[in-house]
Amino acid sequence: MTVHQLSIFLENRSGTLVKVLKLLKDQGIQLIASTIADTAEYGICRIICSEPVRAFDILRDAGVAVSLCEVFALELDDEPGRAADAIGIFAAEGLSIAYLYSFLLNGKGVLIFRTDNADKARDVIKRNTLSFIPEKDLSKLL
């Protein structure tokens, strides 16, 4: 139901993102999806990658401010309206989304998100028999 995601705290300075990506590259870690949320003073870079636990250790040991977290990952059919349906269910249950991003993997849409209430989200996914990704390391599905 959840997958591993790296969340990286970045200063708004040139070169900080490159440093992180290079560390991952040098260790053969492959990116599957990434997104950056920016604020005036810093950015939070969120990455789904191969071997997330090893990637976390690499970054942490290099002094990068990184967290390894679990985020919900729903699998959607690759056709119009599926994201609206899924998010509509959460909205109807009164769950709000902190952040969300999506990508295609093996012909399926993947919706990654974090909510303000993980237990309730789990319950909603079960009750509505929404299709989710069972594997914490997405690269194993590649």
């Binding site: 995601q5 969340s7 990286i8 705290f9 949320a37 604020t39 939070i44 969120r46 942490r60 401010a65 990184v66 967290s67 977290c69 902190a98 952040y99 974090r114």
Partner: peptide
């Protein structure tokens, strides 16, 4: 920020 704090939660 101290090492190890959760930076995912904006």
């Amino acid at each position: 920020l101290r090492e190890g704090i959760n930076v995912d939660d904006y």
